[in-house]
């Protein structure tokens, strides 16, 4: 189990280091690109926990989709290369409150969860299991999420269409 631990710690180090870069870098673009390594490390941890399907989906959705959108948004930011406007620390008191709240929730989860101990970890294909659970036990939440996503999609389409109309009638940019 020694080498297993080493690999897990390497991935954990990648996650912590790149997440620190995301949070503390003075350059917003660096923060965005550092997320790539964070997501990669999380996918690695998923693989070590025998969640193979989740690891691949993590890369596919977060790196291929969400990260690219974040980078787009960052690049469209006004005066992006201006260090003064990016990543300032604002309102430390409120920030500390949120931090404490999140830590409390995380600690609660950590102490409540029934962790599987070393040696109990079973490597097996999880794809079919996840499919079964989604379409049988958790069908209702799954459908609700689908409807939510559909609503978001239609909302985005509506917002974009309004902009085009304003451009045609008013001639404003």
């Amino acid at each position: 189990m020694q080498s297993f631990n080493i690999v897990v710690y390497v991935f954990a180090a990648i996650i912590v280091a790149s997440a620190a870069l995301v949070a503390f870098s003075r350059n917003l673009v660096y923060s965005a690109f550092a997320l790539l390594f964070t997501f990669f490390g999380v996918a690695g941890i998923y693989v070590m926990l025998s969640a193979d399907f989740l690891a691949a989906v993590q890369l596919l959705i977060y790196v291929g989709g969400i990260l690219v959108l974040i980078i787009f948004a960052v690049m469209l930011t006004h005066r992006i290369s201006d260090v003064e406007i990016s990543n300032q620390s604002l309102r430390p008191a409120q920030g500390a409150l949120i931090l404490i709240g999140i830590m409390a929730v995380l600690l609660g989860v950590i102490f409540k969860t029934q962790w599987s101990l070393e040696g109990q970890l079973e490597y097996q294909a999880t794809t079919a299991l996840i499919g079964d659970l989604l379409l049988k036990k958790y069908l209702l939440p799954f459908e609700i999420v689908s409807v939510l996503l559909l609503a978001a999609l239609m909302g985005a389409a509506v917002i974009v269409r309004k902009e085009v109309r304003g451009e045609q009638s008013g001639g404003k940019s």
């Binding site: 790539l36 996918a43 990260l67 980078i71 690049m75």
Partner: peptide, 23 residues
């Protein structure tokens, strides 16, 4: 056992590299 999914997942890293080089 997730071969095809893995191929799509890791090749999505290419996009990030391309944007990075352009920027």
């Amino acid at each position: 056992n997730i071969g095809i999914l893995y191929i799509f997942a890791v090749s999505s890293m290419v996009v990030v590299g391309i944007i990075m080089s352009g920027w």
